[in-house]
């Protein structure tokens, strides 16, 4: 009898420790953990090292399950995606649809993505509007696993519950600490960006979006074109026809703005000026003969606007002066 001390370990269908570990994960999943629950959870973990080991396994299993679901959310596995035009997924009849949902594990997930686009959240989406002043850099937590940093002169709407960000204008970077794809969704006009374990930067400018990925990857429009942008890459995409170009980028230059720096490597003068205008909400003109020039360098945008303009003029070997609301660089 004593030679079989761990029967339960080999019989997972009857393992109270495993079941309790699953219960803790489920309870966190539902956001039903109050302070007493966390303390009870601490006490349970303290009781026996096996509790924690078992819980770790459930956490991994949970990530597996969600990844499976996310993977199968694509249109390929789902020949007839039933994107609902008018049905809510919580209608009582929904239970009858489950059979077809499972057919490939896909349709329901397609519904999920559609749900986020069309009805972001069930009990009325709550979007908090966040704006930064010209030149201001601001870091915001979105739930416990997402950090968003906004560049100056930017406007975003944040739905914390749905982990959805609407990019209205400007620039922001997102750092996600989750290994589940889809922890955050960023909407830029009709485009949808979904993280794949990621740090990425998004700029919305007149009619175009620039997406630079420094870590992990980002999926653009997971339910349509399914374009995967990988680390070390920037794409510049037109918002009307989705045409795009790509180039390699370094994470230092992409995220330098978080320290008030604008770093440019072999960029056209016009695009550098467009960045300065966007971040500082100002207007700059340069002589025509300079506009084709390509620049490499760094500007400190945390300085006074006049200093930034003098620095820019110095890079161009010219001088800066202000005429009304417009900065004029001349040589």
């Amino acid at each position: 009898m004593t030679s079989e001390p761990h029967m339960n370990d080999h019989n997972p269908s009857n393992d109270p420790i495993w079941e309790q570990a699953v219960r803790w994960v489920l309870q966190q999943q539902e956001d039903r953990m109050d302070v007493d629950d966390w303390e009870a959870f601490s006490a349970w973990l303290e009781q026996d090292p096996a509790h924690g080991q078992c819980y770790d396994q459930v956490v991994e299993a949970d990530a597996d399950l969600e990844t499976m679901a996310a993977k199968n959310s694509g249109p390929e596995t789902n020949p007839e995606p039933q994107v609902p035009a008018n049905t809510k997924h919580k209608t009582p009849g929904a239970a009858n649809d489950n059979r077809s949902w499972w057919a490939g594990f896909g349709a329901i997930a397609a519904v999920l993505i559609a749900a986020i686009v069309f009805w972001p959240g069930q009990s009325g989406p709550e979007y908090a509007l966040m704006e930064t002043a010209p030149g201001e850099v601001r870091t915001v937590a979105i739930g416990p696993s997402i950090t968003m940093t906004m560049n100056g002169n930017s406007e975003l709407a944040v739905n914390e519950t749905g982990k959805t960000i609407r990019m209205i204008s400007g620039e922001a970077s997102f750092a996600v600490t989750s290994d589940i794809p889809g922890a955050i969704r960023v909407e830029v006009a009709d485009l949808m960006l979904v993280d794949v374990g990621t740090v990425f930067n998004v700029i919305r400018d007149d009619g175009e979006m620039r997406l630079a990925v420094t870590d992990g990857a980002v999926m653009v429009n997971p339910d349509e074109q399914r374009i995967m942008v990988e680390a070390g890459t920037e794409i510049r995409m037109q918002l009307d026809n989705l045409s795009y170009t790509s180039r390699p980028v370094s994470s230092e230059s992409v995220l330098a703005w978080q320290d008030g720096q604008l770093v440019f490597e072999n960029r056209s003068l016009a695009s550098v000026i467009a960045d300065i205008e966007r971040i500082l909400a100002t207007k700059i003109t340069v002589p025509d003969e300079l506009s084709g020039q390509r620049l490499t360098g760094t500007l400190n945008l945390a300085n006074e606007e006049a200093v930034v303009m003098a620095d820019l003029a110095a890079v161009l070997e010219g001088t800066a002066r202000k005429n009304g609301d417009i900065w004029i660089i001349s040589n």
Binding site: D56, V59, E60, A63, D64, T67, A70, K71, G74, E76, T77, T177, D179, I180, P181, V196, G197, V213, G216, A217, M219, Q225, R226, I227, M228, V229, E230, A231, G232, T233, I235, S246, P248
Partner: peptide, 28 residues
Amino acid sequence: RDAKRSAARKLARETLWAEQVDVHVGGG
């Protein structure tokens, strides 16, 4: 969870999901 996460398993999850991709841009 971040500290304990297996890097290989994390990447496997990501890349498995990413197999359904129409266009890949960049990345080694």
